[in-house]
Design a binder for these strands. Structure first.
Length: 359
DNA sequence: ACGATTTGACCAGA
DNA sequence: TCTGGTCAAATCGT
């Protein structure tokens, strides 16, 4: 916890420094509105992170046993249908449903730009099998339910839900639940990535026409990704607006595995060099930290995602689970990111060698 | 033939 | 009782 305290102090100091910078930019002629807005968002991000740390600390103890119970329980989904194959009376479906709520859960919002020829949710590097679709009250589009293809063979409990946004049909909210315990190889690691059917055909009843993609193209570049874990707060949209990042799948499918190397950085998205500096300084080592094992899509800690403008929300008891889940698996797509590291300001306080953090 | 998807039914939680 | 999540038989695609 010592690191969390240091990090907390660091975040607060950073917020103070940013506020000072903002004050210097308040003069109308000194900088653009964009700069000022970015500073404001950075400050908000800083406080968000600080709060995340505080909440994380307060939930560490009570959350860990839950993770353990999920992972180790014989009542898990590991043997296929919990209803048809579980014979132990102590492992009733009721238990399954209860545990369902305790699984680590986080949401990504994947924006699919028109003209890419791709309108379904992106492949995230894992193989998913659709097991249901449901019309959701108040939602214009049905929600698709997917589970890991290797659930039966390897007992992988990871599931995800794909819900097309009402507000913006080009946005898919993908809610992930549970960590991948399977050892499937992400196709991002393969020389010629393949596509899951999911991304080729998504809810055809809605008339979506998904065009086959050419392998190795950059057509996914126009996508944006937004991530949040659940329930840490309710300010989902307050920060992300400034940036529209490619999804991890984008990054890993693009040459050099980088979404931030040239030409993107040449076509500088910042009009103000200071903003670029601030932005690059924001890269947290968590985001590019070496994953120790297979990743649940993103290897990130909720405390740091905000640095990207990706607002993170974490449920009261889930934050440790998420951290645990997202750092306990290998071949993280994000781990392949090859940022312009010379511009990345590593946080030397980050506990790469802290086993507690990656537990 | 086999695996994936669809879809109505079932179940648990609110 | 309603709603969301899951099951599983039927169907589809390769």
């Amino acid at each position: 916890m010592e690191w969390e305290q240091m990090k907390l102090i660091s975040e607060m100091n950073q917020g103070k420094e940013l506020a000072n910078q903002l004050r210097n930019h308040l003069h109308p002629s000194s900088s653009s509105n964009q700069t000022r807005e970015f500073l404001v968002e950075k400050i908000l991000s800083t406080y968000e992170k600080a709060l995340s740390i505080l909440k994380w600390e307060s939930n560490m103890v009570e959350s860990k046993p839950i993770v353990s119970s999920i992972t180790d329980s014989p009542c898990s989904f590991s043997n296929g249908s919990p209803r048809s194959e579980v014979s132990d009376q102590d492992c009733k479906p009721k238990d399954v449903y209860k545990k369902r709520k305790t699984l680590p859960c986080w949401t990504e919002q994947v924006k699919v730009c028109s003209g890419t020829g791709l309108e379904g949710p992106l492949d995230d590097g894992y193989n998913w099998r659709k097991y249901g679709q449901k019309d959701i009250l108040g939602a214009n589009f049905p929600r698709g339910y997917y589970r890991c293809t290797h659930r039966n063979t390897q007992g992988c409990v990871a599931t995800k839900q794909v819900q097309r946004s009402d507000k913006d049909p080009t946005i898919f909210e993908v809610t992930y639940r549970g960590r991948h315990t399977c050892t499937q190889v992400s196709h991002f690691d393969m020389a010629t990535p393949s596509k899951t059917k999911e991304e080729v055909k998504e809810t055809p009843s809605q008339g979506q026409q998904i065009q086959p993609q050419a392998k190795g193209t950059f057509m996914n570049f126009g996508e944006g990704l937004k991530i949040k874990t659940h329930d840490l707060g309710s300010k989902e949209d307050n920060i992300f607006q400034s940036f529209c990042f490619g999804s991890p799948s984008i990054g890993s499918e693009i040459e050099e595995n980088s979404i931030f190397t040239e030409p993107m950085m040449e076509n500088n998205i910042f009009t103000d060099p200071m903003m670029e500096n601030i932005f690059m300084e924001s890269f947290s080592p968590t985001f590019i930290s070496p994953a120790t094992s297979e990743s649940n899509f993103f290897s990130l800690s909720p405390c740091h995602v905000n640095n990207f403008g990706l607002n993170v929300q974490t449920s009261e008891s889930d934050i440790t689970e998420i951290i645990s889940a997202t750092t306990s698996v290998t071949n993280s797509p994000i781990g392949d990111f090859d940022f312009s590291l010379d511009k990345v300001d590593f946080d030397t306080n980050f506990p790469f060698d802290n086993p507690e953090f990656f537990s």
